[in-house]
Design a protein around this nucleic acid. Sequence first.
DNA 1: TATTTTACTGACCATCTGTTCAGTGTCAAG
DNA 2: CTTGACACTGAACAGATGGTCAGTAAAATA
Lengths: 213, 213
Amino acid sequence: MGQDLSPKQERILRYIDQFTEKNGFPPTLREICRRFRISSTNGARYHLHKLGEKGYLKISRYTSRGVTRRGSESHSAIAQFRMPILGRVPAGPTDYAAPDIREGDVIVDPEFFGRRSGVDLFGLRVKGDSMIEAGIHSGDVVVVHPQPDAHDGDVVVARMEDEATVKTYRRRGNQIYLEPANPAYQPIVINADNPDRENVEVVGVVVGLIRAF
Amino acid sequence: MGQDLSPKQERILRYIDQFTEKNGFPPTLREICRRFRISSTNGARYHLHKLGEKGYLKISRYTSRGVTRRGSESHSAIAQFRMPILGRVPAGPTDYAAPDIREGDVIVDPEFFGRRSGVDLFGLRVKGDSMIEAGIHSGDVVVVHPQPDAHDGDVVVARMEDEATVKTYRRRGNQIYLEPANPAYQPIVINADNPDRENVEVVGVVVGLIRAF
DNA sequence: TATTTTACTGACCATCTGTTCAGTGTCAAG
DNA sequence: CTTGACACTGAACAGATGGTCAGTAAAATA
């Protein structure tokens, strides 16, 4: 890939990268025109839409500066995200803003964990050895995407009463099992018809793990 | 710092972060107004200029979407480090630049792994299950600090012949053991007086681990 | 109690922005 | 010579955008 671009298109793409990196926002049509001595906005527009068709740019319609990088290299895009590490499970649905339970921050790369953006990810420090056979040890930080449901086999963070646990989510018929990866612990059963029972709630899905030795 | 902001100002700052992360460009005055139910652009403008004065935002005059983060970004720029992920152990001492074995990049936070700088860290994708009891699974990426020696108990990356393995480093008298964390595998013994023997070499110490689910 | 600060409203303006349309010159292939 | 793709020009337009001004209601401060 990259061979399907004309020299000018490649230069324009580079300019958009540079401009965005330098200013924090993409250029307007007219800013591109000035840079490349194109006297009509439609000239720049022509190239941007070509680049859009080829998958190198995303163009938001009727949106000023609505031209952003897409695709393979993904280098100069700001992939980093400052993720809060929490000591215990957050109270509200996604309201992890409470600073009293914030242990610190880590910079993570959402792309590594298969997400385009890291906006609502949070880290949770694991206590206990209930998931030791899944390679999740006490002291590890799991990267959590908050969501109230999960797929069969997902590793999830669940809240029971006031405690948080990391478990594997299993669905068998209308029964939901939260299975620990440790034979010393018992799985938790939730009736799918009435998930509120037993005061168990899926907080989110574990999308990653980081550990410091 | 951070205490000099009103709750609303903090929320607006968070919104700008989230919007920019999601869309690739900052919001307009009116987009901020809509989000916070402010009916006048001057209401949003008022807050943005407060945030600008306090150094949290840079505001480009007469520029659409000309509002960008300051401060937290420069803070995170120091901590962030783009670490190469390698598919196999590098050949030379710290010569991991060879692009043919570079699998990709991740952005990591060296501080999380207890290092002030991440300049020479590299990632290594683990194959095999020799360290499964230490919570290191096949497919995990270990964060390696290249160095030829280690302390007793360190998890290290060692090269034997052409293969790389992750092992626990143990020193007993003048004997060095590289112990797998899997009873199915045998420990490797190195004579401390002559480490070159048996063609075994410590490549570096594992300082961290990252895993995508 | 009086004054200042905070956080806006509402109206309006000049300019900026993306979009559209009807053409134009260049160049290579048929 | 003709056709068609490419890379534009030039003009016009509706709506979006940042900026300005005068005023206000509530809260904090003196």
